[in-house]
Amino acid sequence: MEKPSASLWRKIKARYNLIGNECKNCGTRYFPPRIVCRKCGRKSKMSDFKFNGDGEIVSFTKISVPPDTFKDEAPYFVGVVKLAEGPQVEGHIIDNGGKIAIGTKVRAAFRKMYVDGDEGLIYYHYKFEPV
């Protein structure tokens, strides 16, 4: 059983709700959130931004040989999704019977990502689901 770390707790908002940030100086949005805007440097004015989770698949792959963490989940899909509101985001893609292909529209669903044995924490996360 892992002991949950403070860094994990800090990521809950991002993992549950796709909360990244936006540079108010230039309008560039980031996920995961960045401390400093890549374009504006020290002129950055970073502010939380909640992405609505809608987007489309720009790349994906089927994982058949998983790490131990996901040994019961294989085969499963992971990919890169271009959010309608800006950045490209990595994530698991739910195989709901819909077509998983480049260009498929997806939404951000709320799912279990990983369960730490019988006594550890349950880790919840966004996953992308074809719509």
Binding site: D72, E73, I94, K112, M113, I122, K127
Partner: peptide, 9 residues
């Protein structure tokens, strides 16, 4: 339920 679903999700 899917393997990644529970009462919370």
């Amino acid at each position: 339920p899917g393997r990644d679903e529970d009462a919370a999700t």
